[in-house]
Design a protein around this nucleic acid. Structure first.
Length: 192
DNA sequence: GCGACGATGGGCT
DNA sequence: GCCCATCGTCGCA
C-alpha cells in the first residue's frame, strides 16, 4: 500500500510527545468510498488519572474504559448535548491517556466538507474539535476504531514535517474549573 | 474582529 | 441536579 497509517508504536509513547508529533500528520476519513482528509494543526494532551482535566480522573467508567486499553484507538465522546470529540489513546495499556484532535486543515474531499458545514465559511469548517467531527461525520459509531488501520473508516497517515519554529504551546481550552497546576499546563499544541 | 450567552443531553456525584 | 475537553448567533465596533 502506498500510503499506510502511522504504526501503533507512534502512540505508545509520552502523551505530550504524541500530541506534539501529531501536528502535520494527516487525518483521513473514508466516507462512501471517498477520502476526506486534512493536516492536524491543533492538539491537546490529557495525561492519566492524576491530570484533573482528563476524563480518567474519575477512574474506570464505561465511558473512560477505552483510554485504559491499547494505544492507537479512537476515543470519541459526546459533550455539551450536541458535540462529538475525537481523541487518540496513547501510552501503555493501563495508563489512561489520550490526545484530543482540535483542528485540521482540509486537504481532500473539500466539497464534502463544505456540504456538511453549509453555514460555515471555508476557514472555519474544521477549526474546532466538534467542527471537524461534524465535517468528517465522526460520531459514536467510530468510537473504539483502530486509527492504525488504513483499511478502516478513520485513520492517521504520515504527513508533513513540522519544525519546532512553527509550533506553539499554551494552556488547554475549556477547562477553567480545573484546579492548578493542571489548568495552566501548556499541553495544547498548535501550528502558527 | 470580539464578548456574551443559550442550546442540549450524557455522565457522574 | 450539576457539569461540561463547544458552537453559532447576536450585538457592537
Amino acid at each position: 500500500m502506498l500510503l499506510s497509517a502511522l504504526p501503533v508504536t507512534f502512540y505508545q509513547s509520552s502523551t505530550l510527545q504524541v500530541a506534539r508529533n501529531l501536528l502535520g500528520m494527516r487525518l483521513v476519513r473514508r466516507l462512501n468510498g471517498q477520502r476526506i482528509s486534512g493536516i492536524i494543526s491543533e492538539t491537546e494532551a490529557y495525561c492519566g488519572e492524576k491530570d484533573l482535566a482528563c476524563h480518567a480522573r474519575a477512574g474506570r467508567t464505561p465511558r473512560t474504559l477505552l483510554m485504559y486499553g491499547p494505544a492507537g484507538m479512537a476515543y470519541i465522546y459526546f459533550t455539551y448535548g450536541m458535540h462529538w470529540m475525537l481523541n487518540v489513546v496513547t501510552e501503555a495499556e493501563g495508563n489512561p491517556s489520550a490526545v484530543l484532535i482540535r483542528a485540521i486543515r482540509p486537504l481532500e474531499g473539500l466539497e464534502i466538507i463544505a456540504a456538511r458545514r453549509p453555514s460555515a465559511a471555508a476557514a472555519h469548517r474544521t477549526d474546532g474539535p466538534a467542527k471537524l467531527c461534524r465535517a468528517l461525520d465522526i460520531d459514536r459509531r467510530l468510537n473504539g476504531c483502530n486509527l492504525c488501520d488504513s483499511d478502516g473508516e478513520l485513520w492517521i497517515e504520515p504527513g508533513e514535517q513540522v519544525s519546532d519554529s512553527v509550533v506553539q504551546a499554551s494552556p488547554r481550552v475549556g477547562i477553567s474549573n480545573v484546579p492548578e497546576p493542571w489548568k495552566s499546563k501548556p499541553w495544547r499544541f498548535f501550528m502558527v
